[in-house]
Design a protein around this nucleic acid. Structure first.
Length: 363
DNA sequence: CATCATGATTATGA
DNA sequence: TCATAATCATGATG
């Protein structure tokens, strides 16, 4: 902007005019007249506090922003009470565990950044405008009657306007959040088959722990790592697998032979074991279900144990399989034929499986 | 396009 | 809080 002589002159002129007015001998008279007029015309200024009611909506927005980790727990005075109320939800941190999508996080932080910079801008503008108006009114108060209450009122009005803008900002931020979220959820819902590696690893574990296919947290982590999937995916998989296996064991026989065969052959002593196992021949149908297993230990130990040991006393080893079903007597009906067929191919495996159906509840 | 397979979500119960 | 069972929705296949 060019500062011309002319503009300088004009400014100068304005200042002198003001000064002249202030010093004019008639000024006190003018002032009192203005006071009188005001007295008659002005409507009493109502209290400044009447912008509270529509806060329910604002609180909802605040809560959402806080829950999403967009707005921090907030130390500012304004709206502090709302923020306090919302801290009742302890999930302030984005520790949702399930939400680890990097894309999601990136977009979220982008939203957060925009939100904060906008918020700051508005606040700064609000401050500037407020001081500007205050100064203006103060200055004018020398010329005309302006009570401090009026100034406060104006400030309140300004704050009201700006908080309306803020609310709009919050609203649009929330909208952005919603769309982001829904997009993310959609993406999550979109199913993608696991890699061969993953299913392999999972199936191997499942079939070699058929007696108790409940991997511990560590085991899940291990499987997740090996399969390149998340722990919750492992959990999902096992949940689905257990129920579907139980529902239709026949359908899974082939798979079972593949995977248990695979893991069995991995062992160096597979051959020896097989011969041992075949020596056992078919345990009588009635007794097969009664073989207790040692917890969820590995199959081969179990096989060995089974091959050489009679059922140990106590027979409480199945306690960990309770979840697989609590009706011991159900074996004969639902399990035996399946196991029989399976075992005709792999006598050795029959034993490792034999404990599983014993504990399954009938369908 | 119909159908099955399968990963994810939801409702429910212990 | 976890497991189960049912269900949803999509991917794969013929």
């Amino acid at each position: 902007m060019a500062i011309t002589d002319q503009s300088l002159d004009e400014a100068q002129a304005r200042i002198t005019r003001k000064h002249a007015l202030n010093c004019h001998r008639m000024k006190p008279a003018l002032f009192s007249v203005l006071c009188e007029i005001k007295e008659k015309t002005v409507v009493s200024i109502r209290g400044i506090q009447e912008e509270d009611p529509p806060d329910a909506q604002l609180m909802r927005l605040d809560n959402m922003l806080l829950a999403e980790g967009v707005s921090r727990p907030e130390k500012r005075g304004r709206g502090g009470s709302a923020a306090v109320a919302s801290t009742a939800t302890p999930g302030g941190c984005p520790n949702d565990n399930n939400i680890e999508h990097s894309d999601y996080r990136a977009k979220l932080s982008q939203i957060r950044q925009i939100y904060h910079s906008e918020l700051e801008k508005y606040e700064q503008a609000c401050c500037e405008f407020t001081t500007h108006v205050t100064n203006l009114l103060r200055e004018q108060s020398r010329m005309r009657p302006v009570s401090t209450k009026e100034i406060e009122y104006m400030v309140g009005v300004i704050h009201g306007k700006f908080s309306a803008i803020q609310m709009q900002l919050k609203q649009s931020t929330c909208e952005a959040l919603m769309t982001l979220r829904s997009r993310f959820l959609d993406a999550r819902r979109k199913r993608q088959n696991f890699s061969k590696q993953a299913t392999e690893v999972l199936n191997e574990y499942f079939y070699s722990h058929l007696s108790n296919p409940y991997p511990s947290e560590e085991a899940k982590e291990d499987l997740a790592r090996k399969g390149g999937i998340t722990v919750s995916q492992v959990s999902n998989w096992f949940g689905n697998k257990r129920i579907r296996y139980k529902k239709n064991m026949g359908k899974f026989q082939e798979e079972a032979t593949i995977y248990t065969g695979k893991s069995a052959m991995d062992a160096t002593k597979a051959r020896a074991l097989e011969s041992q196992a075949s020596c056992l021949s078919m345990p009588s149908p009635g007794s097969s279900g009664a073989f207790p297993l040692t917890s969820d230990g590995d199959t081969f130990l179990t096989l060995r144990t089974l091959a050489f040991l009679q059922p140990p006393p106590g027979g409480n080893c199945l306690q960990s399989q309770v979840g697989w079903g609590t009706v011991p007597g159900s074996l004969g009906s639902c399990g035996s034929s399946e196991w029989g067929r399976l075992s005709s191919h792999l006598p050795l495996l029959l034993i490792s499986y034999s404990s599983a159906p014993t504990t399954w509840s009938p369908l």
